[in-house]
Amino acid sequence: MRYPAAETAEKHQRILTEAARLFREQGFDGVSVGQIMQATGLTHGPFYNHFASKQALMAASTLHGSEHSRAALDAATASPEAMRQYVRDYASAAHRDAPGNGCLLAALAGDARKQPAVRPAFTFHLTSILAKLTTHFPWQKKRKPRQEAIVMLSAMVGAVALARAVDDAALSDEILAAVSTKFAPMAPPTTAPPA
């Protein structure tokens, strides 16, 4: 039975969205095609009408997640304060506690290195994010913005990964706060505070 093109496209997007979420939550090896299809409300059978293999889905879902992350970063480029807020939101307890809805870099960096099919999509995402941070972040030193972007992004991703890994809530919060304070300090007030 043939489905209308719009319905097929909607199912394809559902599969990508659920796969991206589940992979960020459980890792590439931690979730099966059957679990992904169940999460979409579809049976396992039609999977191969959409993707040639789980590896193809992993790569496509990485690009899908990248698209959403890049859109969120684009929205944050409106102002220097919006960029600082982006960093504060990234290095937050809310992000730490919701890997399925968070950054694929922090969730999947360790897994991506073991998945050759995913590495090109992961690399594309990383270079895209670095380019946006290099161009739009309000760097105090303009000499080496790309180098500073690499350092900042590495600290942000590492902070979230470490904050998720420890079993000490206070330490987890401390890690996030240190990175947020370092890279997105509160902007000084533009007017004198009331007396």
Rank of each mutant, 00 (worst) to 15 (best):
R2I: 13
Y3G: 12
A6T: 13
K11G: 11
Q13T: 15
I15V: 13
L16D: 06
L16V: 03
T17G: 13
A20M: 06
F23L: 08
E25S: 12
G27D: 14
G27R: 08
G27C: 12
F28C: 15
F28D: 13
G30T: 05
V31E: 10
S32W: 06
V33E: 12
I36R: 03
I36N: 05
M37K: 03
T40E: 07
T40G: 07
L42F: 10
T43E: 13
G45K: 08
A52W: 02
K54N: 06
Q55S: 15
Q55H: 14
L57T: 07
L57I: 04
A60V: 11
T62W: 10
L63S: 14
G65K: 04
G65I: 07
E67W: 11
S69Y: 11
R70C: 14
A71T: 12
A71Y: 07
A71N: 08
A72P: 04
A78D: 14
A78K: 08
S79E: 08
S79P: 10
E81F: 04
A82Y: 08
V87E: 03
A91P: 04
A94S: 09
H95V: 04
D97M: 01
A98D: 13
L105C: 03
A107F: 03
G110H: 02
G110R: 03
D111I: 02
R113E: 15
P116D: 11
P116W: 10
A117E: 13
V118M: 15
P120H: 07
F124S: 12
H125P: 10
T127Y: 07
T127I: 12
A131K: 01
K132V: 08
H136P: 06
P138W: 05
P138T: 09
W139Q: 03
W139N: 02
Q140D: 13
K144G: 12
R146L: 15
Q147L: 13
Q147P: 04
Q147T: 11
A149M: 00
M152E: 01
L153M: 09
L153S: 01
L153Y: 08
A155S: 10
A159T: 00
A159K: 00
A161Q: 09
A161N: 05
L162H: 08
R164Q: 08
R164N: 04
A165Q: 07
A165E: 04
V166G: 02
D167T: 08
A170L: 10
L171S: 01
L171F: 02
S172R: 00
D173Q: 09
E174R: 02
L176H: 00
A177E: 09
V179Q: 01
T181M: 01
K182S: 14
F183W: 14
P185T: 02
M186C: 12
A187P: 10
P188M: 05
P189H: 04
A192Y: 05
A192R: 07
A192T: 11
